[in-house]
Amino acid sequence: MIRVCSLTDLDDRKPVAFEVGAEYTPVLLVRDGDVVHALRDLCSHAEVALSEGEVTRKGVECWLHGSCFDLRTGAPSSPPATEPVDVFAVELRGDDVFVDVATTTN
């Protein structure tokens, strides 16, 4: 687990991009109340940053073609994407947000 930011650095339901770890893995964090979701910050359809999109009721929406990805599973919830994006484990330790980019959950 790698410390990425403070919980107070994240606005509710606003995607934020980070590069995490020695490999500079592109990670998108989304705070939803007291829960933080971490996904690979790369659309599986168009290979653009999901962090430039917005969070809708379907998940995070890619700004380029409108594909949406579930925040919990990374599964596409609307086309044109058909492949999921990686989801990373998140751990909150007090006010600190830690992400494990070594293991994906999908």
Rank of each mutant, 00 (worst) to 15 (best):
M1W: 07
P79I: 12
T105D: 03
L64Y: 13
P15M: 06
L50K: 08
L39H: 02
S51A: 15
D100E: 07
S67A: 15
K58N: 13
V20E: 13
D95E: 02
C43P: 10
V90P: 14
R93S: 01
D41L: 05
A17V: 02
V36Y: 08
L28N: 10
A46N: 13
V85K: 13
V97M: 00
R13E: 06
G66H: 08
L39C: 07
V20T: 11
R3L: 03
D34L: 14
V97S: 02
T82V: 13
V36C: 04
V20C: 09
D86N: 12
T25W: 01
C43W: 09
S78C: 13
V90Q: 12
R93N: 03
D11Q: 15
M1C: 04
D96Q: 01
D100G: 04
L28E: 09
S6Q: 09
F18V: 04
R3D: 00
F98I: 04
L50F: 08
E47D: 11
D34H: 12
T56P: 05
S51V: 13
A89V: 08
L42G: 00
H37W: 03
R93C: 02
E61R: 15
A89D: 14
G53T: 10
R57D: 14
I2G: 00
E61I: 12
C43S: 08
D9I: 00
Y24N: 09
L42S: 10
V60H: 14
F98N: 06
I2Y: 14
F88D: 05
T105A: 10
L92Q: 02
P76G: 06
F18N: 07
C62K: 12
L71Y: 13
G21T: 07
G33P: 09
E54G: 06
K58F: 15
L92C: 02
L29E: 02
V30R: 11
V85Y: 15
G59V: 11
V60T: 12
L28V: 07
T8K: 00
A49P: 10
D100S: 07
V90E: 12
R72H: 13
L28H: 11
P26D: 01
R31G: 10
R3A: 08
V30D: 06
V101R: 02
S51D: 04
R40P: 00
P80W: 07
R93F: 00
D100P: 05
R72T: 07
D100I: 03
E91P: 01
